[in-house]
């Protein structure tokens, strides 16, 4: 710590650096407690109740959790969520890295074009879902027309249980590749130039420079991007709900959708809360794993 007040007493220095800032923080802390921490605690308490809307509620201990562990639909939703998350991290990571390598080059209108590339992730998800639904239309949709140009037979996309998850992952990938691109671009901008200079002197090809210098050095940023993407993909709701509502049947029902249906369609608040608690545990666990991975890759040294 530099620039301590000259001649300040020990007490005053302590005061400057630690205490005395709580009045700035209190209002936000109170709001956070009211709208975030209180609901967490209350959800935990509700998950121990038999709480159907419009009926008497009663304390039933861990019965909701017991029910959860014998609920096949919940386990299927969990498997689906993990598959969906895995694909929705992997594909944007690949395409986003490629896009970042391209946008790291200099060319005219780069700022404006970057704005266009970023549009999918900023646009209103429901609006995007509407247009994708029209594009997925088996008879009139543009996607089947484009496939027919390539000689590929028409697909049922989100209207078939077998293709609904890949189709939704396609939307998610289209939407979130730009985020990975931005993170990796930030990484590329921070790379030192010396290794490239010596590689040029040694006569390394473009591909060798990419493979042996660039990629190893941006790994920490890829881990950060995977982390952000993983957390978001796990709780993805808008796109899935607006396009399929979890259908056809339950073929695209993720934990988040199942939780919504239990709590707000079937009005089973107690059971919905139990799902919410387990879901949160899953999100936090995955977060910790990713944070641990980040620690392993020496992310802290990489930020310089």
């Amino acid at each position: 710590m530099v620039g301590r007040p000259a001649g300040g007493s020990r007490r005053r220095r302590l005061n400057w650096h630690s205490g005395g800032y709580m009045p700035f923080i209190w209002p936000a802390l109170l709001i956070t407690l009211a709208v975030i921490v209180f609901p967490w605690v209350f959800t935990g308490w509700m998950s121990l109740q038999n709480w159907q809307v419009g009926a008497e509620r009663s304390f039933i201990g861990l019965a909701n959790y017991a029910r959860l562990f014998s609920d096949e639909r919940f386990f299927e939703a969990t498997g689906r969520t993990l598959l969906y998350t895995f694909l929705s991290v992997l594909l944007p990571l690949i395409f986003g890295t490629i896009a970042a390598l391209v946008f790291h080059e200099e060319f005219p209108l780069r700022g404006f074009l970057r704005g266009i590339v970023v549009m999918p992730m900023m646009a209103t998800p429901v609006a995007i879902a509407l247009v994708w639904t029209m594009m997925f239309h088996p008879q009139l949709g543009i996607l089947n027309y484009l496939l027919s140009l390539l000689g590929i037979p028409p697909q049922l996309w989100v209207f078939d249980p077998g293709t609904v998850i890949p189709s939704l992952v396609l939307v998610e990938t289209w939407q979130w590749t730009p985020l990975v691109m931005l993170v990796v671009l930030g990484g590329l901008a921070s790379l030192p130039s010396e290794p490239y200079e010596s590689a040029l002197i040694d006569g390394a090809t473009w591909f060798q420079r990419l493979r042996f210098i660039t990629l190893p050095m941006i790994v920490p940023f890829l881990v950060v991007a995977a982390f952000l993407r993983g957390v978001d993909a796990l709780k993805s709701f808008d796109i899935i709900f607006a396009i399929t509502q979890g259908g056809p049947g339950t073929a695209s029902e993720t934990i988040n959708i199942y939780l919504y249906l239990q709590a707000f369609s079937f009005n089973d608040m107690g059971y919905g809360s139990a799902i919410a608690v387990i879901f949160m545990v899953l999100v936090v666990a995955l977060t910790l794993i990713l944070l641990w991975l980040r620690g392993c890759t020496g992310w802290r040294e990489a930020q310089g």
Binding site: H17, S18, G19, G20, Y21, M22, I25, L29, T32, V35, I36, F38, P39, W40, F42, T43, M46, V231, L234, K235, F237, N256, L259, Y260, A263, M269, G272, S273, A276, V277, F279, M280, V283, V284, T287
Partner: peptide
């Protein structure tokens, strides 16, 4: 104040699924 623990709360709030606040 370098209150990194509070920043962590904010981080967790960003990660938690919206539906888990919504029932209560």
């Amino acid at each position: 104040a370098k209150a990194h623990k509070l920043a962590l709360v904010v981080m967790i709030a960003r990660m938690t699924p919206a539906l888990s606040f919504l029932i209560p």
